[in-house]
Write a protein that binds this DNA or RNA. Structure first.
Lengths: 197, 197, 197, 197
DNA sequence: GTGTAAGCGAGACGGTACGTCCTGTCTTAGT
DNA sequence: ACTAAGACAGGACGTACCGTCTCGCTTACAC
């Protein structure tokens, strides 16, 4: 375990930039530790020193680095506005930029790599969910015993799901998801029950 | 393109079985065309003859083959019962058997492999969604202009989402998802609007 | 252990030629399995398949291959002529061509590599010594109990020694070595012994 | 070029000892500058400061250091006694201790490293030959125009040759070499010449 | 029947990437 | 200044898979 204080920041930057530009150029499968090192003008050893888990770890950090540039929205009042704002933010980030394909690639790699899965959970999913969860829990519209995690799943899962299955996602879709989750699927008519006579 | 009539069914079986047993033994990353061929006692050439797209195609077919053994449920009356039955069926299949990790692996691979993504869409997702979509559309509770695809996303996305992020899924979760989607997230109180004074 | 019958002779040739040309261009330290494979237009795996011991084995075979082009001399009559012919042949081969530096490199590598040492012994030294030993033993000038191996050492060791210590070797030197070994170092005068009075 | 006066003698010793113990433990190929520095508790930089030529230079010095502990013999009278004493001394040093394998390793490395070759020549071969050459030249048995260098080659080359080719060397062998060189290979009978009828 | 065109087992092949190791230079702190 | 520690670029190592290919052997359909 090397001493982070001795890390050369220029090298750190160069590696992340190289990883990012490779990803942007040719997608997830164009990235390799060899290619990253070559493009960064860095020895492979150096990459493995700081990212022992290999390419997934590097790309994850480059991805988080880029995602940081898009701060979470400051929603208006109320639960609906909160969820809508975050859902639209997701769309802006991951359906409109290369970040979406990278996130998909990372989630894909995580399916075959326990370490990548854990890192993704710790450094991406949890940090994104936590503030939304807290803000939602603070909304007066939610009862105190509400399962906020379920609520977040209901809103964000469809967005991820469409991203991973290659189907389009836009603001309108995000809005309809939020509306359905909060108010129930629109237009449902109570079933003419057997005992209604 | 080889002549399917001349295909040796024993070879076909052996390859699928080998692929499946490798997956079961060591997970997605333990599978390789080399390993499949070796375990099946088959030439690599033969694998590529019938599955030109490589390991993802073989594992997909083996997966579908296994999944076929679990027929879809025959739900009772009504939209809620329909969705609940299918959601629970998903849980039974993919959270309680090795099929879940394999589906995750396939979805993962699909993120870096256009062909795998298409095959998964055509041979797995669509065939599973179609009957549910039809049955749902036939329910009197749904208005004729309802976006049934959105409804299916709302129900199935959370299940896939938790599968892919390695979190547990069970019948209770499935039930709550269905209930929330149909009736709205439980316990929501209308917001004391700004103009209520 | 791969089946030699399935070996592609063109590949075999290409690898040996590549190894040889690399050696000729830049000396022993310019050779690497990577470089051989690249110059031969061959996968590294292929090199390791047929020469599992790596670069030393390849260069040894390339070396033997080249050396084969220079058949041993057919000496005239007598032990002196025999040894002189072979000593001069050594000079012609190893002091006048690139073969000398390569032999030195191989012997050098053998000092740190048991396998290389054994291969060199079996495929180079022994096959060269055997015919000379036999021919020498057949000479009437040698008594039947003569230590022919010692004789060969006395003649060939100085040639190798000078090669390995980077000093020049020529026909004159070879001739003087042979003459000294057969007739005694020239010009020695018996010592005026202490007890000769 | 650093100032030798500022050299820390403890460091010097530690490096030589580390190099030697590594060599003893695992042979030539177990030695690396990294390993030397680590075992000596010294920075790599320090090693390269005082031995810019790297591992060969360090091991050479450690080797010379050890060899110094075995002073050359004080032979009795006469050329034969002189050469025999030095030949036996060689055997004692290099065939009976780890020094032999190290010398072989150094000679091996010298084949691929001009600097090592020169250092070996200057610091090992020449200093060893010079006194023997002088003592031999002073022997009354040798004519004034004798090629003493050839004589030394004839005696020492076979010893080195067997060392480098991994064959055994002992006092008896050394003695026979010396006897053959001085008196001619034993038992040679003049050839029955063609014109002897 | 017999040829002739597949399927097939086996595995060599050119390649790309992996993760480790060593070299020799350079940087940072500590003395 | 010399040192310990170790980051760094570079590049070789030997391995694993990939997807293509070339062999013989055996099927089985066509003539």
């Amino acid at each position: 375990m090397p001493d982070p204080a001795r890390r050369n920041p220029a090298v750190h930057r160069a590696v992340l930039d190289a990883a990012w530009s490779l990803t942007a150029d040719g997608g997830w499968q164009a990235v390799s530790v060899d290619a990253i090192a070559a493009r960064a003008g860095v020895g492979k050893r150096t990459v493995y020193r700081w990212w022992p888990a290999g390419k997934a770890a590097v790309v994850l950090e480059a991805f988080l680095d880029r995602a940081r540039a898009h701060p979470a929205p400051v929603p208006g009042d109320g639960l609906a506005a909160l969820l809508r704002a975050h859902a639209r933010h997701f769309v802006d980030l991951y359906a409109r930029t290369e970040l979406g394909r990278v996130l998909a690639g990372l989630l894909g790699a995580a399916q075959a790599d326990e370490g990548a899965a854990a890192a993704l959970q710790v450094h991406f999913f949890e940090p994104r969910r936590a503030p939304v969860r807290a803000a939602a829990a603070a909304c007066a519209e939610l009862p105190p015993d509400a399962d906020v995690d379920l609520l977040l799943d209901l809103v964000f899962a469809p967005l991820h799901y469409r991203l991973l299955t290659g189907r389009p996602v836009d603001h309108a879709y995000a809005d309809r998801v939020v509306a359905s989750v909060l108010g129930g699927f629109p237009g449902i008519r109570p079933r003419a029950s057997a005992g209604s006579g």
